[in-house]
Amino acid sequence: MLRPFEIHEPATVAEASRLLARLGEQAAVYAGGTELLLLMKEGLAHFPHLVNIKTIGGLDAIAFEDGVLRLGAVATHREIETSPAARQHAPLVARVASQVGNLRVRAAGTIGGNLCFAEPHSDPAAVLVAWDATLVLARAGGERCVPAAGFFLGMLQTAREPDEILTAVEVRPLPPGTGAAYHRFALHERPTAAVAAVVTVRDGAVAAARVVVGSVGPVPVRVPEAEDALAGRRPEGEVLRAAAEVAGRRADVLEDMFTSTEYKRHLVSLLAARALHDAVSAARTAH
């Protein structure tokens, strides 16, 4: 049985922000509830006040405008996976939405809730860091943009201030000659290890690469050593294998109750090889 709480229904971001400022640690932002209610049911957290941001108009919109795909923060994973705009302009972002949790979680869970909860095994987080997405944070006084890579500060910790609301995730279509891929391995519903890669191939060589390792450490992070191993090289056999091996060796890995660090590094290398192969293949056909 959940302990008692009150639900607030702000109509605007400013109203929600003022509520959060006034209630402080007594309040939590409530959207899909797929993470928050689990914590509260287990008695691991209690908030006497939930601020339901789904009552703010337009926060669930998914639209492509001025060259940017904007995912409203309370758009559900299901809405993203089935959105024609998302499928067209950021197919990998739509596909990874279809892999989150299970179909019931995807029907309730929101992209904003997933990112703000900062659970280390988030699929969208790893992909959005690799994609270099922008998160829009708003409060009563105005808004600011934070790159996805700068948003995740630690396990369950983000750059969001207590009175800020994540309002949208902005995703730009990949530049010409760029491909993206995400591979994961899951023993349970949440992945054990995951790698996202975004690679630009120009004149047969790697012009830019972002390799992000997710789920094995506290936050999804780029592995610069793996990216350096690709830069300027022809993305073929030994080059890709070497970069994947480096990704496994240099990733920030934490042991957990199911898997050793050694095994996770092995998984990261395998997944990096698959992700790089698929990203390069996609890059060669993306013009």
Partner: peptide
């Protein structure tokens, strides 16, 4: 399971399957 993993509590809300064990009646 009571943690929206197994599906035994599934009901349709506006035709969409949800886990009733982790959904507020308010919703």
């Amino acid at each position: 399971c009571d943690v929206q993993v197994c599906g035994a509590c599934t009901v349709l809300v506006d035709d969409v399957p949800v886990s009733a064990c982790c959904t507020l009646a308010y919703e």
